[in-house]
Design a protein around this nucleic acid. Structure first.
Length: 826
RNA sequence: GCCGGAGUGGCGGAACGGGCAGACGCGCGGGACUCAAAAUCCCGUGGGGGCAACCCCGUGGGGGUUCGAAGCCCCCCUCCGGCACCA
């Protein structure tokens, strides 16, 4: 009999499906386990990243099933998005046709990997039955003022011809096409993520099952700063300008003010002072720069005097107001009190424009002199030149100044966040329509629920000129207002695809529910997700949006939990030749070729064995060969023993025997313990598989002549059966085949996970290492139950130990239970 | 610049709370089988020294704590990732 992966794999994939082995059921008698992997974008073919992600998830799902959990393990498609549209433009194919064809192909590929999905729960986000609920959520958010429209300067990707959210701009470039992003003023829909900034932040400390680095990245992204807001009155009018600062203790050193060029007040001030021309020139120049340019480090501090002054309420000084290129309109209040002595940016600006520098914080042990300073002093210290506050340590000064401002009604304690609201409008076709109409009389109106879904209309040709493809479709755009019956126009932007992926995991609980977005019972049973698995690249994108969405849906009464994902595993990248596997690098390995040549089980075991899931995986053709070799070795081992396994009942209890049976049982139970531990404590499948390999090596070494008689044969049967059970989550097709060959009932996939007996797993004799002055000098083997006193006797009478101790004094004796003895000898 | 993570044989990686460094796999060397090769099976494999028993060195570098450090503390170097004028 020869191992033939293609025959075996096809056979078991068919049987699993026919028998519905992985259909999830809400069984109230069982504990539930929701295992989820990030769903793929249907780009055309699966890549090694998918194989790795989904293999890790599959092992967990299969393991939990064997452990007696009611497991939900679904799969679906993140089906809206740009590539479909780009392909449509290039190939002339409809985005829907392109997408559904890709889904069909990729689904076949996933099937061939043998993943234990419940395909009855499959969903595609481009399906109206899916996005209709998203439109409903949008309307409810609109009603709660969590969705709003505003005109703003936004990130515009000229290549993708659409607006991008802040999270989708990486280092000034588009996350998808890597082209530089420019600023563009547009009227856009936003979701109010900032409303939840505090809760999103607080819960990063309540997610112990998430990797630290993801939580840290989210905290940094939210970027909460603690400080104060202070009011500065204009010299020539009643207007006050409010600034945010994290350093209220330096307010006595504020000698001028900087304001963002985009700030409406900037041009206003200039107009009033007659400097409109210069200021407008500056604003126009700065605002037009693309983001990468504007925020790059090399850009010099630059500004222009608006002609206006404000009054420092603490010193009474007249502070000139400058428009400055480094002031961000969207952060804080868009205006900054400039303290050149204690802020590097202000320092550089002051030097450039010859503005006064006043020291108000001295370091503990020295005195600063503005004349000789070459950089701002940003550290803590003691307040000076600060009126009644002089002498206070700067930390106390922060509080004192804040309290003072608050008492005098000119500001007070404040926070500021780096996080911005999520801009979700996209000027593209292949997305969920935003369910809003604009009526000439009634204004902005959400589409009534009874009219949902707002179907994405069919389209012949995708054109972008004039604000987006949907604008061209008159039947879509022109509608009668449902309120007044007059003429109205539809919103023609579609939603960011990250909106779809922000709630798909809840819909898996009840994908066919037609009357409501969610079936309460099902959602209550399955959510939250117990284990989520996916790439680190979504650390602040999808993973933040999904958390936000769940909180919003909770507050709208749909959900009764706070966080979507209990445990998160971020798998490493697949690396080849030192670089991430990617089409652009030309170093991809096509999983289909791998399945074709070696089979799914080999592909699975290679990706699992090569490194622990959270680390990067170095691709190696030889490593794949090794995986294939191991699988054949297992197959041949079991086939070799088939005759011995006939009509034999495997041992079950914890009885200890003698000779071969005893040794076999010991190895068997030790292996169960090790494999179970590795999976249970940290999903380290590489070491779990290594333990199984050791077990296989051991089984190969047994002399068949020792396997005569009922007891050794029963022990062998136990060993082989255990081997197959332990392998089942990793290489399920092979395991099913061997399970059947060795005379068992289908399916190994739904068998209980083997239990180990501690007494059998323990060694009866243990090696004790003897260190003398820190070096290993001897090893003794003792029975597991000996006392320290007995060990002491054995050690001191050991020949090798004597050689090192004769004529010397044993000054110290350290004994580590069951492990080692350490002697200090002089 | 700030915030994370990581540096272990020729390679991927083990060593879970300070206790035999290098499990397992790849590669390499040797052997068995074969007319021969592939496949398979067995043995060996961190470096150096020694006929050998053994000895010395060794987890990016330098110091420290400890009977004992890959792991803990201090300083430094390198690589990877995130953020990056956030007031």
């Amino acid at each position: 009999m020869k191992y033939d992966p293609s025959r075996i794999e096809d056979k078991w994939q068919r049987l699993w499906e026919e028998e519905g082995v992985f259909r999830s059921v809400e069984d109230p008698e069982k504990p539930k386990y929701y295992c989820l992997e990030m769903f793929p974008y249907p780009s055309g073919r699966i890549h090694m990243g998918h194989v790795r992600n989904y293999t890790i998830g599959d092992v967990i799902a299969r393991y939990k099933l064997m452990r007696g959990f009611s497991v939900l393990h679904p799969m679906g498609w993140d089906a809206f998005g740009l590539p479909a549209e780009n392909a449509a433009i290039k190939e002339g194919e409809h985005p829907a046709a392109w997408t559904y064809a890709n889904i069909a192909y990729m689904k076949k590929q996933l099937r061939r990997m043998g993943f234990s999905y419940d395909w009855e729960r499959e969903l595609a986000t481009c399906d109206p039955e899916y996005y209709r609920w998203e439109q409903k959520f949008f309307i409810e958010m609109f009603e709660r003022k969590l969705a709003y429209k505003k005109k703003a300067l936004l990130n515009w990707c000229p290549s993708c011809k659409t607006v991008l959210a802040n999270e989708q701009v990486e280092g000034g470039s588009c996350w998808r096409c890597e082209n530089p992003v420019t600023a563009r003023e547009m009227d856009q829909w936003f979701l109010k993520t900032t409303e939840y900034a505090d809760e999103l932040l607080d819960y990063t400390f309540k997610l112990p099952g998430w990797p630290d680095r993801v939580l840290v990245m989210q905290r940094n992204w939210i970027g909460k700063s603690y400080g104060a807001e202070l009011d500065f009155a204009l010299r020539d009018s009643d207007t006050k300008i409010r600034v945010f600062t994290t350093r209220p203790d330096t307010v006595f050193g504020a000698t001028f003010m900087s304001i963002a060029p985009e700030h409406p007040l900037t041009i206003q001030l200039a107009k009033d002072s007659g400097r409109e021309a210069q200021v407008k020139e500056f604003i126009d120049r700065i605002v037009l720069q693309d983001r990468a340019q504007r925020t790059s480090e090399e850009v010099e501090k630059e500004g222009v005097f608006t002609g206006a002054y404000c009054i420092n309420p603490f010193t009474g000084w007249e502070m000139p107001i400058y428009a400055a290129n480094f002031v961000l309109f969207e952060y804080g209040t868009g205006a900054v009190m400039a303290v050149p002595a204690h802020d590097q940016r202000d320092f550089e600006f002051a030097k450039q424009y010859e503005l006064p520098i006043v020291v108000v914080i001295n370091p503990e042990d020295s005195t600063l002199d503005p004349e000789t300073m070459t950089a701002a002093y940003e550290g803590p210290g003691v307040m000076v030149n600060s009126g009644e506050f002089s002498g206070l340590p700067s930390e106390q000064g922060k509080e004192a100044i804040t309290r003072f401002s608050s008492d005098k009604m000119m500001g007070g304690k404040a926070y500021s966040y780096r996080l911005r609201d999520w801009g979700i409008s996209r000027q593209r076709y292949w997305g969920a329509p935003i369910p809003v109409i604009y009526c000439e009389k009634c204004g902005v109106l959400p589409v009534p629920e009874s009219d949902l879904p707002v179907l994405l209309p069919d389209i012949e040709k995708i054109e972008f000129e004039g604000g987006g493809p949907l604008k061209k479709i008159e039947e879509f755009v022109n509608v009668a207002c449902h309120a007044c019956g007059g003429h109205a126009e539809r919103e023609t932007d579609t939603m960011d695809t990250f909106v779809e992926s922000s709630w798909y995991f809840i819909r898996y609980c009840c994908p066919k529910e037609a009357r409501d977005p969610f079936h309460r019972g099902a959602v209550h049973y399955w959510m939250p997700v117990d284990q989520y698995i996916g790439g680190i690249e979504h650390a602040v994108l999808h993973l933040l949006y999904a958390r936000f969405f769940v909180k919003v849906l909770r507050d709208m009464g749909y959900l009764d939990f706070d966080e979507p994902f209990q445990n998160l595993l971020t798998q490493g990248m697949v690396i080849k030749d030192g670089e991430k596997m990617s089409k652009s690098k030309g170093n991809v390995v096509d999983p289909e070729y791998l399945i074709e040549k070696y089979g799914a089980d080999t592909s699975r075991i290679f990706t699992l064995f090569a490194s622990p899931p959270e680390k990067d995986l170095d691709w190696s053709d030889k490593g794949v060969e090794g995986g294939s070799r191991f699988i054949k070795r297992v197959y041949n081992l079991v086939v070799q023993h088939l005759d011995r396994l006939r009509d034999v009942t495997p041992l079950r209890g914890d009885e200890e025997y003698v000779g071969t049976a005893k040794k076999l049982r010991h190895e068997t139970h030790k292996t169960i313990r090790k494999v179970t531990n590795e999976i249970e404590t940290r999903f380290h499948f590489n070491t779990a598989i290594a333990a199984i390999m050791e077990f296989v090596n051991y089984l190969y070494k047994i002399d068949p002549r020792e396997l005569v008689g009922d007891l050794p044969r029963s022990a062998l049967a136990e060993a082989i059966q255990t081997l197959i059970l332990l392998l089942s989550p990793f290489v399920p097709h092979l395991s099913e085949e061997l399970w059947e060959l060795s005379g068992n009932e289908r399916f190994v996939s739904s068998q209980p996970w083997p239990e180990f007996h501690e007494n059998l797993a323990l060694s009866e004799s243990i090696p004790i290492v003897v260190q003398i002055n820190g070096k290993v000098r001897a090893k003794i083997v003792v029975d597991a139950d000996v006392t320290e006193e007995q060990i002491r006797e054995m050690v001191l009478s050991d020949q090798r130990v004597k050689e090192y101790t004769s004529g010397k004094e044993v000054r110290k004796w350290v004994y580590v239970q069951g492990k080692l003895v350490s002697l200090v000898v002089r």
